[in-house]
Write a protein that binds this DNA or RNA. Structure first.
Lengths: 160, 160
DNA sequence: ACTGTCCTACGACAGAAGTAGTAGATTCAA
DNA sequence: TTGAATCTACTACTTCTGTCGTAGGACAGT
């Protein structure tokens, strides 16, 4: 039955190539195997069946699901959000930096990855988010704290 | 002879666990296999030989090298900087976001990973960097290139 | 010189990831 | 109703990762 596991969005662990495919799927919203394959960068565009295999594995991991059929082809849709996935990857990254976003940010900045504008915009996003939060008073601890993600370094949860 | 490949720092591709070990090595500056093993988080602390294997593989990838011996044990030192590594990982991340740091930043912010303070500090770092650059007149970001390992191939300096 | 302890250098192996071929089912346009 | 084109559902590697065990070398006491 190739039953897709119902996984907590937060524990879906993707490999590089799976991420690559998810990237395409996130962009397209939903797509067939062929569409996905065609969106992959020319250089590293594997055979059709290779992509198919990846998609199947993603399905088993609960990262995507079939939503409908077009012709004889299945159309897949993401089950995990890009956001949740980045969060996950970022957390991993943090692991190698004593869990400090600061340090990581510094490295990124120094590495020339981020421009002042990027940061400014991020700030705006953040501020907008804050006020939204206050205005609506929205509670709900949403998905976030699933469980102290087994951080390695001494405790010290990031405070905001 | 287990000759370590002289790899361009930028093309060293590390796996999760290798990163984990590198994390420990970056923190210690230089260390023996045992020291590295002991710095790994209790929970996931593999057997001594497992760590040893990882270190050997890192050596072959040119990510670390033996610098000396203490007793009968080798002491290793990182050959790739933490910075360069983060850069690499970040680049990969960007791949899933249409190459836009903005989008990624937004996701991070929304995910509650970054606080306003984190951003402010990053900005300062950036500004400090800018003026340093202008004042000091651009100087190679070398930092840990202790010895020029015959590095000469066609440089493919990524600039963004 | 003998012995226990700690390393190193290899060799192994299971499971994950990447890559793809094939047989048979579907679909679509004649 | 046929046949080509396209998919799907498997099966099958090969490589890469994570994990160790073991044999034999080095060294510190005794």
């Amino acid at each position: 039955m190739t039953e897709a596991r119902v996984a907590k969005e937060s524990d879906v662990k993707l490999t590089r190539f799976e991420l690559e495919v998810m990237g395409a799927l996130w962009e397209l919203g939903s797509a067939s195997v062929r569409e996905l394959q065609e969106r992959l960068p020319e250089g590293k565009r594997p055979a059709y069946t290779t992509v198919q295999t990846i998609v199947y594995r993603l399905e088993e991991k609960g990262a995507v699901r079939r939503v409908k059929k077009v012709g004889n082809a299945h159309v897949f849709e993401p089950m995990v959000t890009r956001r949740a996935t980045v969060r996950r990857l970022f957390d991993e990254l943090l692991g190698f930096f004593g869990g400090s976003p600061r340090t990581l940010m510094a490295q990124l900045v120094e590495g020339g990855h981020l421009t002042l504008e990027d940061l400014r915009e991020a700030e705006e996003t953040l501020e907008r988010l804050e006020s939204d939060k206050n205005a609506t008073d929205e509670r709900a601890a949403v998905e976030s704290q699933s469980k102290a993600t087994g951080r390695k370094g001494g405790g010290k949860g990031r405070r905001r």
